[in-house]
């Protein structure tokens, strides 16, 4: 019998997840340990759970997997710059840095392409990305104004986001971002010495002291506008496996919304995350979870925010993201790729928005639309499948050569973060 549950102990609680219906329960030690037995289904403790209405669902969601195949476009990542004013040691975009920026004309064609491909969808999203998008500021502002005008004409509502290293932020750009961008992602790795070890300026000096005051100004002034969402987004590497201290360092600088992600680079690099790091990183997530449970500072860690009562809809839970299907990336020369991580990989080029007759490669679109949890052998019986959605296709392609083959590091860390998120919600609920 395939176990319909996942159980773990954290924060002093015995936690039981009913995989197929999303139920989360705190049980006593006797029930918890009875479920370890090979014949757990014959135990009185299991019968008690059944009587309580737990485990009343099968995994019968596969019918929803095909409802989002060849979906209309919803979101676009605009690589407005393939140039950067930092030289970060781990940057995955380094291989596509060509010192080019997207022209406003190409960006406007991309917006037209998104509107045309969105069919009946009303809500569309454009993300300004790079390289460093502030190096193409004229393109950013012209694109926002154009998208708003075209959106009004075609009955579409645009939501704009931007990711920046902050180096070029000034009063004018900060005000515009806070006025127009629903969310802004600000890149910072945590403690000064950690940030400056890999996030260096072109002159080899660290960037921390330049960008921190600019980020603080942006976030402080953002409170006065209609948009409040932002993320301080960092990367941890093999150099700082004590990254909970980096989350704390960011929180202590007064920032509320924090995300720090494991680096994804070749394992040949000295700061790569490797399989042997998994136990150490898991214990660090535990430490961060303990810090969070005592956290009265009003800050949050992205991966530990689980909405157990609502959460994403079933269509979203079956996929890690919409890349290549309802989400695409466009590079400065107008080439279309499944997402920003695939940008520049010629075999995954889906078309070009400058060529009127260039159709989107439907074979690629269909391929990505079918990379759901039922297509990935490793995901089908994984307890975390409805929280993870099958993970990041680009990461699996880069490390395993196949979008449908999740990597061990990704899976182990994803499952640990999910446990921490659930455990924190349980702790909060039980008081």
């Amino acid at each position: 019998m395939v176990k319909p549950f996942h159980k773990f102990k954290q924060g002093g609680n015995y936690i039981l997840l009913d995989i197929n219906n999303g139920g989360v329960h705190a049980v006593d030690g006797q029930i918890y340990h009875a479920l370890d037995r090979d014949d757990f289904a014959a135990s009185p403790e299991y019968a008690e759970l059944i009587d309580a209405g737990i485990f009343d669902s099968e995994d019968d969601y596969a019918e929803y997997a095909d409802m989002n195949v060849n979906a209309p476009l919803k979101a676009m990542c605009l690589h407005v710059s393939h140039d950067c004013n930092l030289k970060c040691g781990y940057c995955f975009a380094e291989s596509i840095i060509e010192h080019t920026v997207m022209s406003p004309e190409t960006a406007k064609k991309a917006i037209d392409f998104l509107i045309r491909g969105s069919a009946g969808r009303e809500h569309l999203e454009a993300d300004f990305f790079g390289g460093e998008p502030l190096l193409a500021w004229e393109t950013v502002t012209q694109t926002v104004e154009y998208a708003k005008a075209q959106g009004a004409k075609h009955g579409k509502k645009f939501r704009f986001t931007i990711t920046t290293n902050g180096l070029l932020l000034d009063d004018e750009k900060t005000a515009y971002i806070n006025e127009e961008m629903s969310n802004v992602v600000l890149s910072l790795d945590g403690r000064r010495e950690v940030n400056d070890r890999l996030r260096k300026c072109k002159n080899g000096k660290g960037s921390y002291d330049i960008i921190l005051p600019k980020f603080r100004e942006l976030v402080d002034s953002r409170k006065k506008t209609g948009f409040t969402d932002y993320f301080i987004r960092g990367t941890f590497t093999g150099y700082n496996l004590d990254f909970a201290d980096d989350v704390l360092a960011i929180a202590n600088e007064g920032f509320r919304y924090i995300s720090i992600e494991p680096v994804t680079v070749s394992t040949e690099l000295p700061f790569a995350i490797k399989k042997e790091h998994i136990p150490r990183i898991k214990s660090e997530y535990d430490r961060l979870s303990d810090i969070m449970s005592d956290n009265n500072g009003g800050w949050s860690f992205f991966h530990f925010c689980a909405d157990l009562e609502h959460g994403p809809c079933i269509l979203k839970r079956l996929r890690g993201c919409g890349a290549g299907n309802e989400y695409i990336a466009v590079t400065p020369d107008g080439n279309i790729f499944p997402c920003h991580r695939y940008a520049g990989i010629d075999e995954w080029k889906m078309g070009n928005i400058n060529i009127e007759a260039s159709p989107v490669n439907k074979t690629i679109k269909e391929y990505f639309s079918k990379t759901h949890i039922y297509a990935k052998e490793k995901c089908r019986e994984c307890w975390a499948r409805f929280y993870c959605g099958g993970g990041c296709n680009a990461e699996f392609f880069i490390f395993e050569g196949d979008a449908n083959k999740p990597s061990e590091v990704f899976c182990e860390l994803m499952k640990k973060r999910t446990e921490c998120a659930i455990a924190l919600a349980v702790r909060k609920a039980l008081g």
């Binding site: 009913d18 197929n20 219906n21 999303g22 139920g23 989360v24 329960h25 705190a26 049980v27 006593d28 006797q30 029930i31 008690e48 759970l49 309580a52 209405g53 737990i54 669902s57 969601y61 929803y64 909405d307 157990l308 009562e309 609502h310 959460g311 994403p312 809809c313 079933i314 979203k316 839970r317 996929r319 890690g320 993201c321 409805f386 959605g389 919600a425 349980v426 909060k428 609920a429 039980l430």
Partner: peptide, 23 residues
């Protein structure tokens, strides 16, 4: 979040968010 005590040994933190819905 409101918890429900199914029995003295089982406290439900959330019931069936996945069913209800039917990164």
């Amino acid at each position: 979040m409101k918890t429900t005590e199914k029995t003295t040994r089982i406290k439900t933190i959330c019931g069936s968010s996945l069913r209800d819905s039917v990164s």
